[in-house]
Design a protein around this nucleic acid. Sequence first.
DNA 1: AATGAATGAGTCTTCATTCAT
DNA 2: CATGAATGAAGACTCATTCAT
Lengths: 195, 195, 195, 195
Amino acid sequence: MAIQKSQEKRERILQAAIQTFSENGYSNATIKQIAKEAGVSFGTVFTYFENKNDLFQAAVLEPLEEVKAVMLDVPEPSEQPIEQIKMLIKKHFQYFAEQTTYMRMIQYVIGQPERFQKQFLPLDQFTIELRDALRPLIVKAQEKGEIINLEPNDVSDTYLAFINGVSLTFTDTVKNSGRWDTFTQHAFLLFGPKQ
Amino acid sequence: MAIQKSQEKRERILQAAIQTFSENGYSNATIKQIAKEAGVSFGTVFTYFENKNDLFQAAVLEPLEEVKAVMLDVPEPSEQPIEQIKMLIKKHFQYFAEQTTYMRMIQYVIGQPERFQKQFLPLDQFTIELRDALRPLIVKAQEKGEIINLEPNDVSDTYLAFINGVSLTFTDTVKNSGRWDTFTQHAFLLFGPKQ
Amino acid sequence: MAIQKSQEKRERILQAAIQTFSENGYSNATIKQIAKEAGVSFGTVFTYFENKNDLFQAAVLEPLEEVKAVMLDVPEPSEQPIEQIKMLIKKHFQYFAEQTTYMRMIQYVIGQPERFQKQFLPLDQFTIELRDALRPLIVKAQEKGEIINLEPNDVSDTYLAFINGVSLTFTDTVKNSGRWDTFTQHAFLLFGPKQ
Amino acid sequence: MAIQKSQEKRERILQAAIQTFSENGYSNATIKQIAKEAGVSFGTVFTYFENKNDLFQAAVLEPLEEVKAVMLDVPEPSEQPIEQIKMLIKKHFQYFAEQTTYMRMIQYVIGQPERFQKQFLPLDQFTIELRDALRPLIVKAQEKGEIINLEPNDVSDTYLAFINGVSLTFTDTVKNSGRWDTFTQHAFLLFGPKQ
DNA sequence: AATGAATGAGTCTTCATTCAT
DNA sequence: CATGAATGAAGACTCATTCAT
């Protein structure tokens, strides 16, 4: 009697891989370590993933769909766009705070774009998608005169950079404390609020 | 004279190491590669550095002194603190734009703090030093009512996170274009300018 | 009925094994490959053969009985022994031409006698059996003065060596063309025909 | 003080490889085994050969030059072509008897031409070169009416097949005994001597 | 001081074999 | 019986480190 069904086992391995790659980087993470972390034997990893590189690919890209779903889920602009932006920022930071392990691995990939070209491209694409998703809200707030007239793409890009920077620089902090409240508030400044 | 020449060779190896570690990460960078990049023979690397880890340690920490010198060189507050802050931001971004290779390696270390504990601590310390360096300027500007009253440490931390985020997320962009002008302007928003 | 069907499956696996071992050698042939070639699942191979070595053993030895039946089926000497020898040679080459795949595997075994000792011995034994089978015909032809007086064992051995050599060296050739006609004629020279 | 010079070490490894591949085939031969046989450490093999396949390539092809030099060294036809052919056969068999290990490996390659395509082609080429080398002698003997008029290419090919067959089928025998005298004599029959 | 051959620990990967379904 | 997931032994290969020249 199998303790777990197949897909569950695959998922366990994938999560173990994210954890291990995140802590150790690609080369320093070993299949042995990942297998142990996942509670399976060494060879079982190869039952679910062709090779180490495929496992890495899956670890980077598969969770990305969910990340996109959350991060790009931007509401239609209402008459209170500022409130909407603040809520969105809150949601984003909350999500990042929950996904520190995965995000760290993402930043690892972004930091070595030539080396991890194949994984990098879809991540880079995300930058553009975020621009498109945020633009209506930014434009609306600007039209209402509630934030200053900055180029929406720049706002989006700097906002994303900020999120990355915070989660890179203050990983431990963000995870525990209520400090991400602070980061949420400061992030809003990048949208250029008046007064 | 001989010492002079030797020191040049050591420096070449160190620069090659920064370049190679930055592009490939620690484990994936090989001594052979570094030696080739430095134009020295394989064994010569071991004449100047005990082992790979020592070389990495040196590559991470030795340039840090210069980075600190530049980044922590904050002027005494004058009666135009806003102008001073803007100039400072400009200097910081300019410097980061010139040091992308080294900075990328720094971010690589920051992203794996448990793995590179020994290298991480001095970098983490820098966060605190930046707080202390920026505080007088921030306080002065707040006292003059030119920026809103945010906790100076938070301003410093988010500002640093932003720099890191930008240089992580837009490495290529920053290096080439005039886009870092944009980032410079947006960075100032994090200080909470009024209107 | 079930047994009948089973035996067919066993035979398919055996033929697939011969094919695969012949092309790839023992170590480079995989059970997976053989199973695929046989159109059965991976695990089924182990239903019919204990392990890889047993499968190889069966692939080498089981068809050997038929080979012997054909190769050692030498007629009683008549008054036209030359004609009989020529017919025999023709039959032998024809058979070899049809069994190239199996023969190649046999030669593979013969080429590594220490490694495949267990399989080699029965094959080596065949040399002796062929001597005994051919001797009467050779002696008869010699007595009639139609071939020169060579040691019958030597004739038999060199004849066998020749067959092996031809099928090793000209596998592709032999299979297609009418070239084995040539080889048949030249083989007869080894019996020492007068003029 | 190095016990051996570099080229000597490379040669030791190459000879060990020939020995090991010859006895075990490609896949079953291990680098470890070869290294041990050569009296060097495991990693040293990789100092002289990129990888296992390159080592195999070298083991097959490098000695081929000498084989060609000996086998294709056919004298200009004199007025005693028969004697020349006999001497040549003797030289060939003697050489084969001395090179059994290498020859066995060659036959291993020939037996798996698709698998070892890269190594097979130069060996196959040798067949053609032998034809060209033997032709003048065969033609001369035919013109003098001392051997029957067989197609010279066929004579060459069957002669080569015979050599291969003998060394495949009677490796042990040939090595020790004076039995190769017998094979030498019988080989001559393939040239079609009259009476 | 500079060099690069020698070494072997550590990794990925393959694959025969086992065994639960 | 048939299947294929799980396992881990074994092998190729990489590369930091040592050390003789």
